[in-house]
């Protein structure tokens, strides 16, 4: 009996807070995507030749969890198979957030282009589905810039997104 109550409470909590945090996250993603629109991120491996650039590796990662309710719904869908709609926003949020962190770093370095962007997604253990998304690419900086850009990213939600300190 107590188990059943606990389960119902977890489901309710997951549903309520999960919806809330997802909505908030999407609002933040959409706002920051607009702000960072001038930064071009492409998958091409071939930067324009003829010009000199300084290249810096930019990396963005994020760990996002689905919630208890969505994981439960997904486990039900799994029985019958088919499209698991409750996980789609999770992956979408993870990818967009990771890319935004890459863009924020590029912006902090003063770069307007990021080349050869790669994504990587991995599952993190636990009862509730949790994923990590990593995005990385090469930011091209004008080589005439002599001042070392501040190693600081403009993220308002995260402190861990400082660039890997490997600027040459």
């Amino acid at each position: 009996m107590i188990d059943a109550i606990m389960f119902a409470v977890l489901l309710l909590l997951g549903f309520g807070f999960g919806q809330l945090s997802e909505k908030r996250h999407y609002r933040s993603i959409i706002r920051r995507e607009k702000e960072l629109q001038p930064i071009v991120v492409v998958g091409s491996k071939h930067p324009p030749t003829g010009e000199k650039f300084r290249q810096v590796l930019v990396v963005g990662n994020v760990v996002v969890a689905s919630d208890y309710f969505k994981s439960f719904v997904a486990s039900l869908v799994n029985i019958f198979g088919g499209r698991v709609r409750t996980y789609e926003p999770l992956l979408d949020r993870g990818r967009r957030e990771a890319l935004l962190r890459v863009k924020e770093q590029a912006h902090a370095l003063g770069a307007l282009q990021v080349f050869n962007i790669k994504y990587e997604t991995s599952r993190i253990g636990g009862r509730v589905t949790t994923i990590e998304v990593l995005a990385y690419g090469t930011a091209l900086l004008d080589s005439t810039l002599t001042t070392e850009p501040a190693m600081h990213s403009g993220s308002d939600e995260m402190s861990a997104s400082a660039p890997l300190s490997i600027a040459n």
């Binding site: 999960g18 990396v59 990662n61 994020v62 760990v63 969505k70 993190i124 861990a160």
Partner: peptide
């Protein structure tokens, strides 16, 4: 803490930091 947080969904900052630090060390 991360286990509790995952019930409610959203970013697990502890793990994000862990993986970021780990990546810095690997680099």
């Amino acid at each position: 803490m991360a286990g509790l947080k995952s019930i409610f969904g959203g970013e697990l900052v502890g793990y994000t930091e862990l993986l970021h630090e780990s990546r810095e060390e690997a680099v």
